[in-house]
């Protein structure tokens, strides 16, 4: 579903990861680990197509649904309105399963601006369900979630995998998912060298 072939990524022109290869099939999940600043976010943004890889190839980027650190919610719209917008943007149909999966039914009419951080995060994650895309790319999805909500999230991911989806998740929490591989990005750290853009100047 998603294949990374010797991908190198740069952050602000400075190489952070080199030669990352990865194949993600149906029903599989890969958890990315690595210390802060090791390039997990940069790799995920590259996979999501927000920036081009410095080298290598990514296949299946068009199947990716991405959720970053920010939830992209509009404070003055209600939870349901926020989700409905993404439903029409991705051309899918229904927000109810997404609301149900993250226990948001009671909050459907509440404005996102009046929600707690954890509730907003749940709403942000519920967006993944309405995209209808098979490959979820999630960056630290469990930040500000309590134990119950982490359980909801883990269930949503495993349901998604069962339906033949795939997920690439950067997280430090053990989600207890079946068929999960862990990819530590530390060995792929780019050898210290100048920014790719600056190499011509050395």
């Amino acid at each position: 579903m998603l294949t990374l072939d010797s991908v190198s990524v740069t952050r602000g022109g400075v190489p952070v990861l080199d030669d990352v290869s990865l194949a993600l099939g149906r029903g599989q999940a890969v958890v990315l680990r690595g210390p802060n600043g090791s390039g997990k976010t940069t790799l995920l943004r590259t996979v999501a197509g927000l920036q081009p890889p410095a080298a290598g190839r990514i296949e299946g980027a068009e199947r990716v649904a991405y959720a970053g650190h920010a939830d992209g919610l509009k404070a003055s719209l209600s939870a349901a309105e926020n989700l409905r917008f993404w439903v029409s943007a991705f051309g899918t149909h229904d927000i109810l399963p997404a609301l149900a999966a993250f226990d948001l039914e009671a909050l459907a009419d509440r404005r996102a601006g009046e929600m707690s951080a954890g509730q907003k995060r749940r709403l942000g994650l519920a967006r993944m369900l309405v995209t209808g895309r098979p490959v979820w790319v999630l960056d630290e999805p469990t930040v500000s979630l309590d134990t119950t909500s982490v359980g909801l999230f883990a269930k949503a991911v495993s349901d998604h995998l069962e339906k033949g989806g795939a997920a690439l998740i950067a997280t430090h929490i053990d989600l207890g998912l079946p068929d999960t591989r862990t990819l530590d990005v530390t060995p792929y750290r780019a050898r210290p060298r100048a920014a790719a853009a600056d190499e011509a100047f050395l």
Binding site: P192, A194, D198, E199
Partner: peptide
């Protein structure tokens, strides 16, 4: 401009090494 850029690149390389 080239020299300034080169200086910055060299400093960045020193720091990275």
């Amino acid at each position: 401009e080239i020299r300034a850029r080169r200086t910055r690149a060299l400093i960045a390389r020193e720091r990275a090494a």
